[in-house]
Design a protein around this nucleic acid. Structure first.
Lengths: 351, 351
DNA sequence: CACTTTAGTGCAAACGTTTGCGTAATTCAA
DNA sequence: TTGAATTACGCAAACGTTTGCACTAAAGTG
């Protein structure tokens, strides 16, 4: 019994000998009060029995809203994003919205085309978790009148809704932690500086150090070409080459921090004995690692929730000019990759 | 410059002083050959300049195909699924399809309602990675005429397209590996038996053992109430309670295997010295773990690809009766959680 | 009782496409 | 040059909804 044909409003109407408009109104929560309670009851009963499902395409065409949104993340393989996505969807579900998922692959060009695809699909709004500091996507959305909220990564020009965590505070906590452990020669493995989080975290690092009257020399900072594991080991290799005396590094990212571990191993150094490492993001399963990573934790799920709430609000209000910023608090989770500094007996301890 | 109104076919037609049907045909790849090359060129140029984007809702309403599919997974937090999703989308992208993502939360009821939602959204097909052995979703899809392909988890009744890996072979490899290491007292932490993978893997375990003339007694098998970490430690606790002599266990799942680790720790046992563990799935980042898990690896990404290909094929052919099964090969990746058995000096070594 | 108001329902247009069919203009065969 | 075949395009219907408006019948008002 294959029902290739779905049951439509007209089918219901004919079956009940009433007009399709009455059926439509009876089914709608808001307009059902125009209709006599008795009819409403009969219509809904018939709808249930005959298995009526609203045709989303027809609705979208008529009303102009698809009840869908698009979300763009850099890469699903980065374990940071699944919780964010879940957060988004948890609130979307409550309002009958559904989400498309697309990837930027850390490339603004593909992000742009993906956004175009989503807009062409008629999404009511977009959550963008892959922004570059200078990003054409925000112009695109603005020109097309599509609500947009940025999450995690933000954009230099200020007039757009954003949900982010206080990266500066996070880095400050990391630095303070290392200082308390006695570290002074601290390095920073930054991410690409065209991504806001990389930039902000790096600046927060130097600023916090400065507040403690610690000058950070240029060779203490090296920039990874991506927020990835591979880029991390590459960057850490050059760092270790030019900083044999460093006792700790902060990585812009957990993935970069992992990369640091393998570079460390290649140099025959051990963590945390020879060098402490702290990451950023608190990705899942870190507790299981051989040397569990000290890292600053961000409220992934909550970020998703707030972003979705903000977007829905913006979709409703039709007021695109206003922009809001919600700032979430990070917190430091201390594990085994950081330890008190050991005063070297000699200047160099080439193992 | 907020363009709240999108440019439509009619806008193009009026601007060019031709009929909308001509515009439509000129833009379509297939029917553009009915139109003079000159007109086609002009239309496409104008479309580009005026920023025309096809209205997906209108197209869907008219043609009946939304060029979207739905995928249902148990839970995004399970690190096995992101690669599968990526695989699916990588082939979907090539054909202009987009995917909705929904979660069953390992509950057939919610899976059912999610599928209904997706169908109501007009998806052209569904990829279902969360099936139970007896699952109403396949009936639902069949009755609604919606193409369905199962991935990873399959269903008892046979007539539905599936992409799966040879679980039995995977377990056989795991058992053989343990036997080679000298293990004989091997346990199995099974998953819920209403999920095909749990059931099949368990059966493969007892069968393979039998092939080696090893009877497996009932107390050697305990069933976790879910394919999750928590369920794993719970099950492993009862296992250890009733099997003080066991030297190895196979877990139905990496997540369950992780749970086994913590149960082990609670008993003060060490892995692999006291007990070897092997998992299933080869989730990401296992290499980083304190004791890297020996596990059977499945081709996640490829599974996604094949599932998408199969679904697209089924969507095109309109032939719902036929069903196909693609079977992928697993392989064993040996890490540190398995080691040769140590012959106990005494019968009991209560630490 | 004659009237205005109100409640309940039907009619028809519209959303932006696609596509079968008709028709005018062009080409071809003879 | 004439008729048939072909090419290129326009006309209009249809997909399944929603919604402003018109209409009927009942209820309320004086």
């Amino acid at each position: 019994m294959v029902h290739r044909k779905r049951v439509t409003l007209r089918d219901l109407a004919e079956h009940l000998n009433i007009n399709t408009s009455t059926v439509s109104r009876a089914l709608s929560e808001k307009s059902s009060e125009m209709i006599s309670p008795d009819v409403v009851k009969r219509v809904r009963k018939a709808a249930r029995e005959m298995g009526y499902k609203q045709n989303a395409a027809a609705y979208a065409l008529k009303v102009g809203s698809t009840k869908t949104i698009g979300m763009i993340i850099p890469d699903l393989m980065n374990p940071v994003f699944p919780p964010i996505i879940r957060g988004i969807q948890s609130v979307l579900d409550q309002y009958g919205y559904t989400a498309f998922l697309a990837y930027s692959q850390n490339n603004e060009g593909t992000a742009h085309t993906e956004v175009e695809r989503l807009i062409s699909r008629g999404v009511d709004g977009i959550i963008y978790a892959a922004a570059f500091r200078k990003d054409s996507v925000v112009e695109l959305c603005k020109s097309q009148g599509v609500p947009l909220v940025l999450v995690n990564r933000v954009v230099d020009q200020g007039d757009v809704d954003t949900v982010k965590v206080d990266d500066s505070l996070g880095i400050k906590m990391a630095v303070d932690h290392l200082l308390e452990l006695g570290h002074r020669k601290i390095g920073f493995i930054a991410g690409p500086k065209d991504i806001s989080v990389s930039y902000i975290r790096l600046r927060a690092f130097t600023r916090t150090m400065a507040e403690h009257d610690l000058e950070v020399e240029p060779h203490r900072i090296v920039e990874a070409h991506a927020l990835s594991e591979a880029a991390g080991t590459q960057a850490m290799s050059v760092f270790l080459g030019q900083n044999p005396d460093a006792t700790a590094v902060i990585a812009s990212n957990d993935l970069i921090a992992l990369g640091c571990f393998t570079a460390l191993k290649q140099f025959g150094y051990s963590c945390p004995k020879r060098l402490s490492i702290v990451g950023f993001n608190n990705m899942p399963y870190l507790d299981w690692f051989a040397t569990p990573l000290t890292t600053v934790s961000i409220p992934h799920f909550q970020m998703g929730e707030r972003a979705a709430e903000l977007l829905l609000k913006r979709i409703k209000s039709e007021n695109l000019d206003y922009n809001e910023e919600v700032l979430l608090k990070p917190k430091l989770v201390i594990r085994d990759s950081t330890a008190p500094v050991i005063r070297p007996k000699q200047k160099s301890d080439a193992t």
